[in-house]
Simulated scan of single mutants.
Amino acid sequence: MGFLGFIYFTFIVVVVIQFIFYVFVFGKLAFFKPQKAVSKNIAVSVIICAKNEAENLRRFLPSIIEQEYPDFEVVLINDSSKDDTLEVMQDFAKAHINIKVVDVKSIEAFWGNKKYALTLGIKAAKNDYLLFTDADCKPVSKYWIKEMCAHFDSEKSVVLGYGAYAKIKKSLLNKLVRFETLITAGNYFSFALAGSPYMGVGRNLAYSKSEFFKANGFINHIKVRSGDDDLFVNQVATSKNTAICIPNGSFTVSTPKVTFKEWFKQKRRHVSTAKHYKLKHKAFLAIFYSSTLLFWLFAMILFVSLYKWPLILGLFLARLTIQYIILGSLSKKLNESDLLLLLPFLEIFLIMAQLTIFINNLISKPSHWK
């Protein structure tokens, strides 16, 4: 077997792997028909940890305060900010009796570690059910708390939500950021539906305080700078205790990065936590992303060489077709349908970015949060 023959047969294997992922993994979410959860009106503590976020708090905190929910408090954690974040928090607390401020001072052992600040905030929360978001996030509706917390019950102690990024017209970077977010959400929602939840995002995540303390908080990965959301979920989430929440009213929208440098730095920090996932999750993710890379690489080699090109074209188009069908349904659920027009381009661009991030993380460690 020559070089092109090897590439050809490997390409077939890669296409089969991609089919399996899109049909049997992403398909879990694409064709998922959620039943409307019944609101239980349980007492909830909304947790927001902020570091140098004064302007974002002024802009977005009112959307939290104005939630239509009968029993909730807002725990604002000031993580050693250098701007007037604390003063803004205190002003809001004076105006609203359901706001509690936790002022965290840096200590040498946990300098720059968000998990330390979050732990203090969680301890200060008066309610057992905790709902997390970021200072630069805005719920898309007044029923965010209601939608997310309706999924808690005697078995479900972890709820995974969708944290979208705001759309910016005529911005290629914005579409790339949102496409990466869509693929990531497709992965973690689908794996949860398949009975193997592995991560969530702190922009929209809920779990019980009892679950937090049962796991001894973040102690298992306290030395890892990032991962207060995905690593914790990877540790505690199971097929029985985890639910997903995908009604549009349950989404949050965050302010996206507006330069490639800022986004690249953010993704380096996020990607660095993946190596701490459970082995089975690392293996599945590695297979998916490597097979995507090899699909495009081998397709280009075979097309240029014209090696059995009718068969290659058929496999190529079949994979794109199933991808469009699955991601079309998935993106409609998550209100990201406008990304489909640039799907092949965005995928190739994302592969290149992820490869660059992976290489950079091997060379040097990403910085801690803010």
Rank of each mutant, 00 (worst) to 15 (best):
R178P: 04
V177K: 00
M199D: 00
L173Q: 08
A185W: 00
L176P: 00
G186P: 09
A194Y: 15
Y188I: 07
N187T: 03
N187V: 08
S171G: 11
T181R: 13
G161R: 00
A166Y: 01
L182F: 13
N204M: 14
A206L: 11
G195M: 14
G195L: 07
G186E: 05
A166V: 10
A194P: 04
A194S: 12
S171A: 11
G195T: 13
Y207R: 01
G200S: 12
S171Q: 09
N204P: 13
A194R: 13
V177W: 00
R178E: 06
Y188L: 09
Y162E: 12
M199Y: 02
E180R: 15
F179N: 02
S210Q: 12
G200W: 00
A192V: 09
K209C: 09
T184Y: 13
L193W: 10
P197L: 14
N204F: 05
K209E: 13
L205P: 00
L182V: 10
G163R: 02
Y165S: 00
I183R: 06
K175I: 07
R203G: 03
E180T: 12
L182N: 00
L176H: 06
S210G: 10
S210T: 15
T184L: 13
S196V: 15
I168K: 14
A166S: 07
S210H: 13
L193E: 10
K167I: 11
L173V: 11
S208V: 11
Y162K: 10
S210N: 10
P197M: 11
G202A: 09
R203Y: 04
Y165H: 04
L193H: 05
G186N: 04
L205S: 08
R178A: 02
T181C: 14
Y188T: 08
F189D: 03
T181P: 01
A185K: 02
G163Q: 03
K169G: 15
T184Q: 08
G163C: 10
Y165C: 05
L193D: 06
K169R: 14
K167C: 03
A194K: 15
I168L: 15
F179R: 02
F189N: 00
G163E: 00
S171N: 08
M199Q: 12
G195S: 12
Y165T: 05
K170W: 09
L193T: 10
L205M: 15
N187E: 11
P197C: 07
A166W: 05
N174I: 01
S196N: 09
F189Q: 01
K167E: 13
V177E: 04
G202M: 02
S190Q: 12
Y162N: 08
V201F: 08
K169M: 09
V201L: 14
M199C: 14
A166E: 15
L205T: 05
V201P: 00
G163N: 12
G195A: 09
A206K: 04
I183C: 07
A164K: 05
N204C: 14
T184F: 15
F179S: 04
L176M: 14
T184I: 11
N174Y: 03
F191T: 01
Y198Q: 06
L205N: 05
S190N: 08
L182K: 00
